[in-house]
């Protein structure tokens, strides 16, 4: 595929087209990803998450400054929610990063969630692969991080930076069960605002409940708009990353992620095959009616369907 070569050469237009291919779930997607797969695995992936308006995009902008000054090629994927009503979206994260728009070594891509829950877009993992294969050293993902379910960022990022701000009140309670637990590094942004000490105390207390861990979660105070605390933050990230690596945690994390991916992949592949065979889309209303009227019972009916499907497949295999 011509696109593969152009992506591997790092051609910007090709990279952008490849992400679209992946994002749309184009029929060529699987072949494409398989063709670049052996060139992946060199990039480091940071996830930035936290509640709306916490300053995530502003922070990413400042982090790009730092990493560019070290000569790194940086890519950003910024995810915003799609409207559940129209399916449209306003993707506004990159507005805060436009100072990098014309830097040939910075690539920024906005993605809409397109109905995918979990805080990232459904094809984020493959989009990361495109950027990785294209030679970006660092990939930063800005995700939606509002509550208990927006935690899929841990399935794509090596390090999760959780951004919190003063004055969230009860919100911090709401975050506790979900997003609050997935941070590797806690960034308390808008330190210029009142209530920063209170937030720091709350976060430290919460972290103290996690018990002993040799990889203690760092807490860093920043003021992203004023560019305060950013250099310290990058040092903290580097330090944490090297500890992740030497303690073998990174390998462990990545393996866990790949295991998750395999599970997802199998489920979606099997679903596709089964739905095609049973003609689910066509039949589902009919089945629902039969279930509601009590004409069939759920387990025996579908166990039989699956059994028939398996017998059919093995017959086909025999005749081939």
């Amino acid at each position: 595929m011509e696109l593969v070569d152009r992506v591997l050469k790092g051609e910007i237009r090709a990279v952008a087209k490849a992400i679209t291919l992946v994002e749309n779930g184009h029929p060529d997607k699987e072949k494409f990803i398989d063709s670049i797969y052996s060139k992946c695995g060199n990039a480091v992936v940071w996830g930035v998450t936290g509640p709306p308006g916490a300053g995530k995009s502003t922070l990413v902008d400042k982090l790009i400054d730092q990493e560019r000054s070290k000569g790194k090629k940086v890519a950003v994927i910024a995810v915003d929610p799609s409207s559940p009503f129209s399916g449209g979206a306003v993707l506004g994260d990159r507005l805060r990063m436009q100072s990098h728009a014309t830097d040939p070594n910075v690539f920024i891509r906005s993605m809409a969630s397109r109905g995918h829950l979990g805080g990232v877009a459904g094809n984020t993992t493959d989009a990361v692969r495109v950027l990785d294969a294209a030679g970006y050293d660092l990939i930063i993902i800005e995700s939606i991080g509002v509550g208990q379910t927006e935690i899929e960022i841990i399935e794509v990022a090596d390090i999760v930076l959780l951004v919190l701000v003063p004055g969230m009140g009860d919100e911090i309670q709401a975050l506790k069960a979900g997003v609050m637990e997935i941070g590797d590094i806690y960034i308390l942004n808008k330190k210029d605002h009142d209530g920063i000490e209170k937030l720091e105390a709350e976060v430290n207390y919460m972290l103290s409940l996690k018990g002993y861990d040799e990889l203690k979660n760092p807490v860093v105070l920043t003021s992203a708009v004023e560019n305060i605390g950013i250099v310290e933050l990058t040092h903290t990230i580097e330090d944490y990353y090297s500890r992740l690596k030497t303690s073998n945690r990174l390998t462990h994390k990545r393996k866990k992620r790949v295991r998750e991916e395999i599970q997802h992949l199998l489920i979606s592949k099997i679903m596709t095959v089964i739905n095609k065979n049973l003609e689910t889309e066509k039949n589902i209303d009919h089945w629902a009616e039969k279930l509601i009227s009590g004409e069939i019972s759920p387990y025996s009916f579908f166990n039989q369907k699956i059994k028939n499907f398996l017998e059919e497949s093995s017959e086909n295999a025999d005749t081939n």
Binding site: S82, S83, F85, S86, G87, G88, A89, V90, L91, G92, R94, L95, Q98, A101, T102, S110, A112
Partner: peptide, 20 residues
């Protein structure tokens, strides 16, 4: 308005140069 029509709209703010 375009979002409400179902499009994905990227918005980049004021004072953009032709290059950006």
């Amino acid at each position: 308005a375009l979002k409400d029509e179902g499009y994905e709209v990227i918005y980049t703010g004021l004072r953009q140069t032709p290059d950006s």
